[in-house]
């Protein structure tokens, strides 16, 4: 009745492979790469950036010259996408306008992040009265209607590209500030921060060298998304006639041609598509970054 004991002989365990140390950036890239949508976004974004960087050099038609009869439909002339309401080449406008749009969007986003991080870092790090004061200021900006405030700024100071970027940055930093503040409040009580503090690190060092790098991941995501918002903002302002009349941008093409929409769908549709694709690309990349940089999602 007794069964022969089954001898299970354990083969000698091969030595566990010691995983190569992986840098956080590489790890994030791995995560990112697995995300199909994010990769499509990245490809699109690179395409848009390449267009803005190289397009004007490759396509020599000036976006300001009147080259053909106004409102020529796409395909009816040598200008593939047709012409706008004064007979300018729409394709040239898109190519040159992309650069302006992206530069304005990019600088506005940079400004957003700079102001937001500065305000949020001080508020979150110091807490108390400073926090209170800075947050009241933030709330003040938060309750003002963004686009309206930007319009006022541009109306008062003139519609140049610099002013437009400043206007957008000045009205859209609040959410970044709040995000930074929360991260700082969370991180400032971490052991490694306390340790650093106990050996006498200055506030500046703690803020910029210790806490900020650790608070970076959500901020990077927020920065990416605010670039998309800034592009939409620029388009919105230009659409309302508050763009820089001396610089071709996607929003301005739409704004200028809007009165002719019943006669020329192409003149508003193509720049609209361009804005759509650029913002979509940025959003997808932002989402992908969010997933890739979030440690809690890394195990998935």
């Amino acid at each position: 009745m007794s069964e022969p004991p089954v001898m299970t002989s354990m083969p000698p365990m091969p030595p566990m492979p010691v995983p190569e140390p992986v840098s956080p950036a590489r790890q994030a890239w791995r995560m990112f790469r697995r995300n199909g949508a994010a990769m499509i976004g990245l490809a699109l974004l690179l395409l848009v950036l390449a267009e803005a960087a190289l397009g004007p050099a490759l396509y020599s038609v000036s976006p300001d010259d009147m080259v053909w009869m106004p409102l020529t439909p796409p395909g009816a002339s040598e200008y593939w996408l047709g012409t706008d309401y004064v007979g300018r080449d729409l394709l040239a406008g898109l190519i040159h306008g992309g650069r302006v749009t992206l530069i304005v969007g990019g600088s506005a986003a940079a400004l957003t992040v700079a102001i937001g991080v500065l305000v949020g870092a001080f508020a979150g790090y110091y807490g108390g009265r400073i926090d209170n004061a800075l947050m009241r200021v933030t709330e003040f900006f938060q309750v003002l209607p963004n686009l309206l405030l930007a319009m006022v700024v541009v109306m008062l100071f003139g519609a140049s590209l610099v002013n437009i970027a400043i206007a957008i940055g000045a009205v859209s930093w609040t959410s970044t500030a709040r995000l930074t503040r929360v991260e700082f409040m969370r991180l400032r009580e971490m052991d490694y921060v306390r340790a650093e503090r106990s050996i006498g690190a200055s506030d500046a060092r703690l803020i910029w060298a210790v806490i900020l790098p650790n608070a970076a991941p959500p901020l990077i995501v927020s920065a990416a998304l605010s670039a998309g918002t800034a592009i939409l903002f620029e388009a919105g302002l230009a659409f309302l006639g508050l763009g820089d009349p001396n610089a071709m941008s996607w929003g301005r093409i739409i704004g200028d041609n809007r009165p002719y929409v019943l006669d020329a769908w192409w003149a508003v549709t193509f720049p609209g598509l361009a804005i759509f694709l650029a913002v979509l690309a940025i959003s997808l990349v932002g989402d992908g970054l969010n997933d890739a940089l979030n440690p809690r999602l890394r195990e998935r």
Partner: peptide, 29 residues
């Protein structure tokens, strides 16, 4: 603006060819 807009764009493009640079300033109101 339906008249002044196209005129301004034309003047800027045309005088540009002559070496006279025109900067447009749109009044907000």
């Amino acid at each position: 603006l339906q008249s002044h807009g196209p005129m301004a764009e034309y003047i800027r493009a045309q005088l540009g060819k002559l070496g006279v640079s025109v900067e447009l300033r749109r009044a907000p109101d």
